[in-house]
């Protein structure tokens, strides 16, 4: 249990670091935050009263560290401030967007696994043969394709050259479930394809080393069929690393959803962030970044803990 305690304790400094960095970002702004906000609000000459009111609302009259803790306290109550463009609370905006991003990520992961597992199996089983070389070369090439190029190419192929899928837009799942899923196929495929090389390669390497184990040779000598061995013996130990790696793909998933939501105009958290950047909505940008960073830290912790649960040796070593 020491390992778990240590991991969770480790989270404390990281939490303060991440939140403090997020909080301090506003101070990076060249010039005065109040000016920046007021100028955005089109009131051509900000009056002294406006300034004073805003400064008070942002607690600018207090020292930085106090402001940080006020901000942190508000955050715990679900208040990340409100957008200065449309005065919507940041947390409300996030709540609307989270399900969309989540659906996208889950679909992307399903597609990534669906493509990577068969390729990895074939490649590992036929290691060194032409089919493996072909798959490996393909994976190497895909690795050199940035997400946004992958998305562009997929749009061109499946929405323009052979128009079977929509290239943008999002429909509510409750209203049109099929339309909703259709809208997610290309974006999810974009993220999924980018992840395939990594997942596939790990599975392949793992499978190769597993297939060299004695018990596989034993199974073969007992006359079991190739397919039976592959699925009932070889796949099982291999999939452990695979699952871990899958958890570790989170960073890519976040990058992926930001890019893909922008490219395909999907109203998720990533799109919210980019739109806020475009509109120069400082508070909204800060709020979304804080949220994403905290989720990232939290999920990473979860992955570490899960890893330890799956493989007790990790906890033993870490203690």
């Amino acid at each position: 249990m020491n390992y778990f305690k240590a991991k969770i304790l480790h989270l404390v400094p990281v939490f303060f670091l991440v939140t403090f960095a997020s909080f301090m970002m506003l101070n990076l702004l060249p010039g005065d935050l109040v000016d920046a906000i007021l100028l955005d609000e089109e009131s051509s000459v900000p009056s002294a009263a406006d300034r004073a009111a805003l400064e008070k609302e942002l607690n600018l009259d207090k020292p930085v560290i106090i402001r940080y803790f006020i901000w942190l306290g508000n955050m715990f109550q679900g208040d990340l401030g409100r957008s200065y463009i449309n005065t919507q609370p940041v947390t409300e905006a996030l709540a609307l967007r989270i399900p969309v991003s989540l659906e996208l990520m889950i679909m992307a992961q399903i597609l990534a696994i669906g493509i990577a597992v068969p390729l990895g199996l074939i490649s590992g089983y036929k290691a060194g043969q032409p089919i493996d070389r072909g798959i490996s070369a393909g994976a190497f090439a895909v690795l050199a394709v940035p997400l946004f190029i992958m998305g562009t190419v997929l749009i061109w192929i499946f929405a323009i050259w052979w128009p079977i899928l929509p290239s943008s837009g999002h429909t509510d799942f409750a209203k049109d479930a099929w339309g909703n899923i259709q809208g997610f196929i290309l974006p999810a495929l974009t993220i999924g394809l980018i992840e395939v090389p990594v997942l596939m390669r790990v599975l392949r390497t793992d499978l190769i080393s597993t297939l060299q184990e004695d018990y596989i040779a034993l199974a073969k000598s007992k006359g079991m069929s190739t397919r039976y061995i592959l699925f009932n013996h070889a796949l099982r130990p291999s999939s452990f690393t695979f699952i871990t790696i899958l958890g570790l793909q989170l960073g890519n998933l976040i990058t992926g959803s930001i890019v893909v939501e922008t490219l395909f105009s999907i109203p998720g958290v990533g799109k919210l962030l980019i739109d806020a950047v475009d509109a120069r909505d400082e508070i909204l940008v800060q709020g979304v970044i804080t949220f994403v960073a905290l989720v990232y830290v939290g999920v990473n912790l979860l992955v570490d803990l899960m890893y330890a649960v799956l493989d007790p040796r990790v906890a033993a070593r870490g203690a």
């Binding site: 930001i258 950047v277 960073a293 990232y296």
Partner: peptide, 24 residues
Amino acid sequence: SIIVDSILAFPNIVLAIAVLFFAG
């Protein structure tokens, strides 16, 4: 290892967006 962990605490693209947005 603490410094490295701290750097990795932010998802890279998000920090890059934040810095470029706030610092120009």
